[in-house]
Simulated scan of single mutants.
Amino acid sequence: MGALLWLLIPVLAALAATLWSTWVMRNRKSGDVAELAGYARFRAAMEKEPPAPDPASDTF
């Protein structure tokens, strides 16, 4: 009986490893779309020209 319990340890470890690898390799493409859209908005904002300063507002 004791030998069967010791055999159960590697079997449970293999089962846990299988579940963990299934979780790690899951398909997570849904988050990439939002992230890429945010990056596109960031690039568009960085490519804009800054507004020209108004010379009449300088009060030095």
Rank of each mutant, 00 (worst) to 15 (best):
M1G: 04
L4I: 03
L4R: 12
L5E: 09
L5N: 06
L5F: 05
W6P: 04
W6L: 10
W6V: 06
L7W: 03
L8V: 00
L8W: 01
I9V: 15
V11K: 03
L12M: 08
L12K: 00
A13L: 15
A13P: 04
A13S: 11
A13C: 12
L15T: 03
L15P: 06
A16S: 09
A17S: 09
T18W: 08
L19P: 00
L19R: 09
W20S: 04
W20F: 04
T22Y: 05
W23Q: 02
M25Y: 05
R26Q: 14
R26Y: 08
R28H: 13
R28A: 09
R28M: 06
K29V: 07
S30P: 03
G31R: 14
G31I: 06
G31Q: 15
G31L: 13
D32G: 13
A34R: 15
E35I: 08
L36F: 13
A37S: 14
Y39L: 13
Y39V: 04
Y39H: 12
Y39I: 04
Y39M: 11
Y39F: 10
A40Q: 14
R41N: 14
R41G: 01
F42V: 07
F42R: 14
F42A: 09
R43M: 11
R43I: 01
A45M: 12
A45T: 05
M46D: 07
E47T: 05
E47F: 02
K48R: 15
E49P: 09
E49A: 12
P50T: 07
P50V: 05
P51H: 00
A52E: 13
D54F: 09
D54C: 09
P55T: 04
P55Y: 07
P55C: 01
A56C: 06
A56E: 13
S57D: 12
S57E: 15
D58Y: 11
T59Y: 00
T59F: 02
F60Y: 10
